[in-house]
Write a protein that binds this DNA or RNA. Structure first.
Ligand SMILES: [Mn+2]
Ligand SMILES: [Mn+2]
Ligand SMILES: [Zn+2]
Ligand SMILES: [Zn+2]
Lengths: 148, 148
DNA sequence: AAGCATAATGAAAACGACTTTCATAACGAA
DNA sequence: TTCGTTATGAAAGTCGTTTTCATTATGCTT
């Protein structure tokens, strides 16, 4: 948990600033997100937060609420679904994602900014981009097939 | 339809080389893909091919078959679903995609190759990447809200 | 401490883009 | 034509996520 000390307090303030309410569940979910060392699925987050009885919809709604405050980044998986991660509002980055275990490595280099510039020249507005690299991490290498 | 003349024939040969069969429906779907000037959804492709009575599963299965031959590129949309496009097997590129009308502009610059190199250094294998830029194209600009 | 408007929650059903299953039809090599 | 294999359609299933709606909790105001 190598994160700024007042981070959580600042987040809570940001949330209370709007119409959102900070409930026990949201505190637990926020705490779990803060403690995570990697992006997680909604279901995994619910479990990590120690709220196994909570409905998943609550998790999704909470994530949506947090996303609105700008502290959640969504990382799409290759096939379906996505992972969620707590980030500072202006911390733009991408990831290497293991297709198998969903281990992710942060990728600080973003090469898409100039692409967005090109899009702008084409007349596009409200531009954003998606860039993730997928593969099998060290731990998920397929067992070497013998004679196939 | 600015595509090499023998392209279709080469594709048909490639397909017949394997266990795949070239049926009327597949010919029509292939023709529609060839005639498209932009990536399309499975449902739109079925309609463009003039096969409104065909089941969508046939379209998906055909696209899957063509993908296996390396002539289909899949372009993920921001929210859900994806578009399909006919490409030459080694024609790697990305897109600008309009969130609204799904108009796409080809983006020949691929910046992710060096990222894949980084992933390799991290021990990842079977690496690929996803990179698309989303926005609203010229034709889909929101009507300027007056006094809001 | 109550009261109250508003936001959060849970249960269940709905969504949407696919995918699977299985029986039937079409293909194409021999 | 025959026959093994592949393609197709109908219907149901999947899976992550969202919607609906009735109930409960929050937190600001008396
Ligand atoms: Mn990250
Ligand atoms: Mn393209
Ligand atoms: Zn970026
Ligand atoms: Zn690329």
């Amino acid at each position: 948990m190598k994160r700024a000390k007042g981070f959580l307090q600042r987040i809570i303030q940001a949330i209370k600033r709007g119409p959102l309410r900070m409930t026990r569940k949201r505190e637990r979910l926020l705490g779990a997100l803060l403690a995570m060392d990697r992006p997680v699925s909604a279901a995994a987050l619910r479990d990590k937060a120690g709220l196994p009885e909570s409905d998943l919809v609550t998790v999704y709604r909470t994530l949506e609420a947090f996303e609105g405050v700008g502290i959640i980044q969504r990382i799409p998986l290759e096939e379906s679904g996505c992972l969620f991660e707590l980030t500072e509002p202006d911390d733009h980055h991408h990831h290497f994602v293991c297709r198998e275990c969903h281990r992710t490595e942060r990728l600080d280099l973003c090469l898409a900014i100039e692409l967005e510039e090109q899009a702008r020249k084409l007349g596009f507005t409200q531009i954003n981009h998606l860039m993730e690299v997928y593969g099998l991490c060290e731990d998920c290498q397929p067992a070497a097939a013998s004679g196939d």
